[in-house]
Simulated scan of single mutants.
Amino acid sequence: MPIPPYRFLTEVLKGQGQVTFMPSALTGLFFAAALFAAGWEYGLYGLLGTAVGTATARLLGVDRGRVADGLEGFNACLVSTGCAVFLGADRISSVLMALGGAVVVTVVTAALANVLASWNLPTFTLPFCLVASATTMAAPGFHRVWEGAAGTTALTRPATGATSLSWTQLWHAFFADIGQIFFMPQWYVGLLFLLGIFAASRSAGLVACLGSAVGIATAWALGSPADGIAQGLMGYNAVLTAMAVCGVFIVADRWSLGYAVAAGAAATALTAAVTSFFAPSGGHTFTWPFVLTSLVFVAAVPSFPRLRRV
Rank of each mutant, 00 (worst) to 15 (best):
P122N: 04
S118Q: 13
T168Q: 13
F124C: 00
T135R: 01
M137C: 05
C129S: 07
V145E: 05
N120L: 11
F175M: 12
I181N: 12
P122R: 09
Q180F: 08
R157C: 02
A173S: 15
A162T: 03
V115D: 02
F182M: 11
Q180W: 06
T156K: 11
R144L: 14
L116K: 07
V115T: 10
R157E: 11
L130M: 14
A110G: 07
T135P: 02
T125S: 12
G151M: 04
A111C: 09
A162S: 15
A132N: 04
N114K: 14
Q180R: 13
L130D: 03
M137K: 01
A132R: 06
T168W: 10
A173D: 11
F174H: 06
P185V: 00
Q169G: 15
C129N: 07
Y188S: 08
A134Q: 01
T153A: 15
S164G: 06
L121K: 05
S133W: 07
F128C: 02
R157K: 14
W167E: 01
A117N: 09
E147I: 06
L165K: 11
Q180L: 09
L116A: 11
P122A: 12
W171L: 02
A117R: 14
A139C: 00
A176R: 02
L121Q: 10
P140L: 06
F142R: 06
L165Q: 09
R144Q: 12
L170G: 08
Q186N: 05
G161N: 02
R157N: 01
G151I: 07
F183H: 11
T152Y: 12
V189H: 11
V145A: 10
N120D: 14
S118T: 10
W119E: 00
T160Y: 04
P158F: 03
F183R: 00
F128S: 02
F183C: 05
V189S: 04
E147H: 09
L121R: 08
L155W: 04
Y188H: 14
P122L: 11
F128T: 07
A159V: 10
F142D: 00
A138T: 09
W167M: 07
E147N: 12
S164P: 02
R144D: 14
T163S: 10
W119D: 05
P127I: 07
R157P: 01
L126K: 05
A110H: 01
L126Q: 06
I178Y: 06
A176H: 09
I181W: 03
P185W: 02
T135A: 07
S133M: 13
T152V: 13
P140Y: 07
F183M: 14
F175S: 10
A176S: 15
T136P: 00
S118V: 13
P158G: 08
T153G: 12
A176P: 09
F175L: 15
F175K: 00
I178T: 06
H172S: 15
F182P: 01
W187M: 14
T123M: 04
H172T: 12
N114A: 13
T168S: 13
W119F: 13
T156H: 13
W146P: 04
A149G: 15
L130R: 10
T160F: 05
Q186C: 05
